[in-house]
């Protein structure tokens, strides 16, 4: 991306909505995926992210040009998710899994923030990522995409393909391994 963070911040301060639109196009999807994975509620997840963009816009005059804007967005979403999990734990519908997700979220937070800031979100990384998905063996790719895009559970996918749940998990792991290796230069 040819545009520096300072230029983005200056643009936002000047009231340029195009700047916000570009950021939205680039980060909305990933942030929603992050929140959705945490709160397991698509509506709420989107709300958190919309909130983050709103807050960014409303406090644009106070933005620190040293802090990448995407990190600002991510931190708002992260703290909404953490608050949500905390609240969930305080309530009756406390589940062990929400405690686990909470622990996971807080321990990966710092490094995730780093990834959001790094060039892994830039265009070249994105192209590389899409190319790599295409390079996956056919069945692995099909299963992986079904899992990621249709939100089918592993047993559902297993049934669809007439294979065991274990094999579905195997294909998913294979795909993740392959993609992580392919993106290693960007991490």
């Amino acid at each position: 991306m040819g545009i520096s963070n300072k230029e983005i911040v200056d643009g936002l301060k000047a009231g340029k909505t195009e700047m916000l639109r570009d950021l939205f196009g680039q980060f909305n999807g990933l942030l929603v995926a992050y929140a959705k994975d945490t709160v397991k509620n698509p509506l709420l997840a989107e709300d958190f992210v919309q909130d983050a963009f709103c807050t960014l816009w409303e406090s644009r005059q106070k933005l620190n040009p040293e802090l990448p804007v995407q990190s600002y967005l991510y931190r708002v979403v992260h703290s909404r998710c953490v608050d949500f999990l905390r609240k969930q734990q305080a309530q009756a519908n406390y589940s062990q899994f929400s405690q686990i997700r909470f622990n996971e979220l807080t321990s990966t937070h710092q490094y995730f923030d780093h990834l959001i800031i790094s060039q892994i979100t830039a265009k070249e990384a994105n192209d590389k990522f899409l190319d790599s998905i295409r390079e996956l063996p056919e069945q692995t790719r099909e299963i992986f995409q079904l899992s990621r895009n249709s939100e089918l559970t592993n047993p559902e996918i297993a049934e669809k393909f007439g294979i065991s749940v274990k094999s579905v998990e195997y294909h998913i792991t294979k795909a993740l391994q392959f993609l992580r290796k392919a993106m290693e230069d960007f991490f």
Binding site: G25, A33, Q50, C54, N149
Partner: peptide, 28 residues
């Protein structure tokens, strides 16, 4: 770090393929 990279890959591959969702932008 190792796990977070995996998580990043996992989330990134779950991003809707639609390049730009005008609808959501309008709502924002």
């Amino acid at each position: 770090r190792y796990f977070t990279q995996y998580k990043f890959i996992w989330l990134k591959s779950g991003v809707e393929n639609v390049k730009f969702s005008g609808n959501k932008w309008e709502r924002l």
